[in-house]
Design a protein around this nucleic acid. Structure first.
Length: 613
RNA sequence: GGGCCCAUAGCCUAGCCAGGAUAUGGCGUUUGGCUUCGGACCAAAAGAUCGAGGGUUCGAAUCCCUCUGGGCCCGCCA
């Protein structure tokens, strides 16, 4: 509704400008903003200053001429001219009881659908995210991808896309071959792994039962399959480095790459294990996928070979001195030191980009559009991939394959290092968070049984962690700290959840049925009611912008603002204790609408809304 | 050496792409508030040369250029 009114205002302004100055302006070119400061109305425009040059008149005059001719669209009550800093603003005020009434009705009748639109209805979006290397448990660095991806999926669905989520599993890499070799050669049984004072791994041949320091470090997760693989990965990598066993691994990887099913099977076994563990972690976060796409598939079905053939036919294709085949993308600003991006080694094996090309050709054929969430370290790779797909004729339009990049999550002080066995796994973070949350929940809810406490603690902890990583713009580097990630106060998910729980509490105490019923006549008696309702009305616009511009943090931003606004309302406008019945009923409708909007917003962030906490 | 990204109070952060109203909030600090629908809260105070310099503009945190600091990339790894 808010966006419709905005468009109406733009149209009316365009018409007024046409009549006043004989200037033809498209409504799209007229800037009208949704105002966040109530004293400036619901919308504002700096149109006057923009017409300075085209009209050659003074702002006062322009404002007057426009206002004289401005035909108020529905729900617009008045327009005021306000001067500030040399700029004459046109501020638009809505007919409040009428507008507020409509907003609340819309929320309560749309329920879980409030905020959604059908803009992309009937179109399918294939969203690839996470695609975490199958070498160990998910760490707090990689999980940013999953959280952004899952939120983008929700946002895309909210604007009408039929979304399919995919996880690309690289089961062909050298890293996986290393682990397979390590398991088959029983490295963790034959060698003891310790770490020296600098944290460097130390490997010793063991006579008796081998010790593995990682096992004691991550004792709690000793039976989790992704951790088990990680326990083998670290010593095996060290062994290969110490004894120069690279060629053995290369051989195995090469056999896979050439499509040897037995070898691929050996790697697949490892990958299945890690993936099972990673899936458990993702499941704890409430993140699931429609499809897991294995790289090996594109080798086995011949599409990788086909991609190589097609690449060789391109005019940018060349053979390097070493005998490798490459593609020169320098005309597109993508320079490589060796003279091109290598896609086939001299021994005939292909480089990752070939499988990537094959994979994306397949993906492009599956949906109307593609979106992928990738770390900033893959920026160049993605550009190359896109350029190649265009050269091959598989990508007709740039918009059909889009990307959301995000910056890395660092560690304060010590760096995360798989080689040194130093990781902060998401499992640890979740467990620690839930433990802390349990303490808090128990403190506040003595009457609840253990099971209920545990459930709420989970919702609070997971909410806090997700919100913490999603509230910041994706390209901003994050520095991970336990205190920040598990902070339950201030600008954090528990604050928002708390506002929701309070809303629930009011309705519970008032014996209110949480249905769509709403009084005939909504009354607004103070600013806290109007401001709250106004903010609720912004939600659909926020969802649309966050989805279109791929800025998931806007949701977190909004959730916090709405919670804050509700808290103000809570303190200033007694609901159940309201003197007049009409006021009480109106406020109940506002509480219901706030609760619904908070719930919908948190839900998009993958955060649950407990009714008590 | 080349390319991309980030820089806003002690710390974290919004706003930047589409320039315009006293620069958004949080943490921390100081002060005050639980016989009132839940104190994971609220009210108030202090705290910002918007990294530095130049330019464009009536107007710059926002656009352009140079520089500085940090991150990432420039593998026949994936």
């Amino acid at each position: 509704m808010i966006d419709e009114i905005k468009v109406d205002i733009k149209k009316s302004l365009a018409k007024a400008v046409q009549e006043a100055f004989q200037l033809s302006k498209s409504p799209d070119d007229i800037s009208v903003d949704i105002q966040t400061k109530p004293e400036f109305g619901e919308f504002s425009s700096n149109l006057c200053v923009q017409l300075l040059k085209p009209t050659g008149k003074k702002q006062e005059e322009i404002a007057l001429e426009i206002i004289l001719r401005f035909e108020k669209p529905e729900l617009v009550e008045s327009v005021e001219v306000m001067e500030a800093g040399g700029v004459y603003y046109l501020n638009f005020f809505l007919d409040f009881p009428e507008f507020g009434d409509k907003v609340l009705r819309e929320v309560l009748s749309s329920k879980d659908d409030y905020g959604k639109s059908d803009y992309h209805k009937g179109q399918k979006l294939l969203l690839e995210h996470s695609s975490i290397n199958p070498t160990g448990p998910i760490n707090v660095g990689r999980v940013r991808n999953s959280l952004i991806g899952d939120t983008m999926a929700g946002l895309a669905r909210a604007v009408g896309w039929d979304v399919e989520t995919h996880f690309y599993v690289d089961d062909m890499g050298k890293q996986v071959a290393t682990i397979a070799w390590g398991i088959e050669n029983k490295v963790s049984e034959k060698y003891s792994l310790t770490f020296d004072e600098r944290g460097e791994p130390v490997l010793e041949k063991s006579d008796g039962p081998a010790k593995n320091e990682l096992l004691s470090r991550y004792e709690k997760y000793a039976d989790k399959p992704d951790f088990k693989v990680f326990f083998t990965y670290v010593p095996t990598t060290k062994l290969i480095e110490d004894e120069n066993l690279d060629s053995e691994i290369d051989e195995l990887a090469e056999r896979c790459e050439k499509g040897d099913e037995e070898s691929i099977g050996r790697l697949k076994k490892v990958v299945d294990d890690v993936l099972a563990g990673q899936k458990q972690t993702l499941e704890r976060l409430g993140i699931t996928f429609d499809s897991f796409d294995f790289a090996s598939r594109f080798v086995l079905d011949g599409s990788a070979r086909k991609a190589i053939e097609n690449l060789k036919e391109l005019p940018q294709s060349l053979e390097l001195d070493t005998g490798a085949n490459a593609i020169d993308l320098s005309e597109f600003g993508l320079e490589r030191r060796g003279g091109g991006t290598v896609f086939q080694r001299p021994n005939g094996t292909s480089v990752y980009i070939v499988r990537d090309v094959a994979y994306h050709r397949w993906k492009l054929g599956q949906a109307d559009a593609n979106l992928i969430v990738l770390g900033e370290d893959h920026k160049v790779e993605f550009k190359e991939l896109k350029t190649i797909l265009k050269l091959l004729g598989d990508l007709k339009d740039d918009n059909l394959l889009d990307v959301v990049h995000f910056a890395f999550v660092g560690m304060k002080g010590r760096r995360m290092s798989t080689r040194k066995g130093v990781i902060v796994s998401v499992d640890e973070l979740l467990d620690e968070g839930i433990e802390r949350a349990e303490e808090e929940v128990r403190k506040r809810n003595e009457e609840l049984d253990d099971e209920k406490v545990a459930e709420i603690a989970k919702q609070v902890a997971i909410g806090a962690i997700k919100y913490h990583m999603l509230k910041v713009q994706t390209m901003k580097q994050l520095t991970f700290s336990w205190e920040d990630a598990l902070d339950f106060e201030g600008d954090a998910a528990p604050y928002v959840q708390y506002a929701h729980a309070r809303a629930s509490s009011i309705l519970r105490k008032g014996g209110v049925f949480e249905d769509a019923s709403i009084p005939e006549n909504i009354v607004f008696t103070n600013d806290s009611e109007r401001d709250l309702t106004r903010l609720i009305s912004h939600f659909p616009s926020i969802v649309f912008t966050a989805a279109a511009e791929r800025r998931p943090h806007l949701l977190a931003d909004y959730a916090y603002k709405l919670a804050t606004q509700f808290t103000e309302f809570y303190h200033k406008s007694p609901v159940l204790g309201a003197e007049e019945e009409e006021v009480k009923e109106s406020r109940i409708a506002m509480v219901k609408a706030t609760k619904q909007t908070l719930r919908n917003c948190l839900s998009l962030l993958g955060i649950e809304s407990p009714d008590r906490m």
